[in-house]
Design a protein around this nucleic acid. Structure first.
Lengths: 193, 193
DNA sequence: ACCAATTTGGAACGCTTGTTTCAAATTGGT
DNA sequence: ACCAATTTGAAACAAGCGTTCCAAATTGGT
């Protein structure tokens, strides 16, 4: 049998995530990837097929990790107000800790590519839908426990919360400071009361 | 004296806006611009210097037109709730009428480039600030007229409204339908009550 | 009608893009 | 120790990128 790869595929995929996340698909060149992953061109191409496939794999890995965390948080929610506040705070802390202002890989990709690439549009849409559905379930549960007084539908509120999350991450990517982020989250939370 | 240009610079600039708006900076090639504007390469380069300059001019034109309209609307506001609702509805109508799902040129650009290009970052930041300030003024006025019960600061609310506008346009760019857009706007408006 | 200024068209530039090729190096199994 | 499979490195690929060049065409002013 042959020799084994002397690098870890997933570890490299994580590096690819960060490269694409920072500069987007078009602005990240094959050379950037070779340099950033620290492997040879050949290895890159015979491991990940091509740039687009590597991008797709990167996006899927990101989605599983990040969205997975959020779905868990929502499923374990006991107090919907606290849960949403916690989600907002996590986002704010993460974005403020990121010196590269990367924002959200999923949102960035949606803006850059979802109008021009059907497969990527599907990944983005499926992700949005799963988060939205988890939000609906958590809000519905909170409503039954008397935690939600807002008379609008749970789905409408869920779509609003999701939109606010997107907005926070676009805001962070544009270089806003913590106070702005906190203000947006505070006003959004106020609307749930 | 020499012959005059046989095309209108601003008219062509508007075409450039639409091209960059649709596909973004990196994905719009010089060839796309030549085809889309319908002029020769030479004319393009000796009129607009280069691709980056053309992009910058396009972005500034968009900013003056769109933001100008919004600032006017806000300055003439008599009922802040109605004004915000009207702004949201205009955005929804415009986005739903756009078969190309272009979203907002300013938001798209912020996501694609503002982290990597200082000059463009400045244009985006200045734009955001002017809209935010106009929102603060209009909210402040509404507050004095008893139209705003929300106890949070006018600036916080302004930043939230601006974020919601961004979110609406990212949502539209991702391909969402009218109902989703309307739901987001409805919940956001509820928070002003 | 002519001159001078400017635009125009088309070819060509050098460079970077994403991708492929292939021989050499490496390694596990027998 | 050898074979077979696989990875690796470096060079090369064609295609497309943004940009420049220059001769030809066009036009206003005198």
């Amino acid at each position: 049998m042959p020799r084994k790869k002397d690098f870890d595929e997933d570890e490299l995929l994580e590096k690819a995530v960060n490269l694409f996340w920072k500069k987007g698909y078009h602005a990240t060149s094959a050379q950037d990837l070779v340099d950033g992953l620290g492997i040879n061109r050949s290895s890159l191409y015979n491991t990940y097929t091509d740039k687009r496939t590597l991008f797709t794999k990167s996006l899927k890995m990101y989605q599983q990790q990040r969205t997975g965390l959020m779905l868990n948080t929502l499923q374990q929610s006991q107090d919907i107000g606290e849960t949403i506040k916690q989600i907002f705070n996590n986002i704010i802390d993460e974005d403020m800790a990121d010196t590269m202002q990367k924002g959200c890989f999923m949102v960035n990709t949606a803006v850059e590519l979802s109008g021009q690439d059907q497969e990527i549009n599907n990944i983005v849409s499926a992700n949005n839908q799963s988060v939205e559905d988890a939000l609906v379930a958590a809000i519905e549960k909170g409503r039954q426990n008397g935690q939600v007084l807002n008379p609008l539908t749970s789905r409408a509120i869920a779509q609003f919360i999701f939109a606010t999350i997107s907005a926070l991450r676009v805001t962070a990517r544009s270089g806003a400071g913590r106070q702005v982020m906190q203000n947006i989250a505070d006003v959004a939370l106020y609307s749930l009361k």
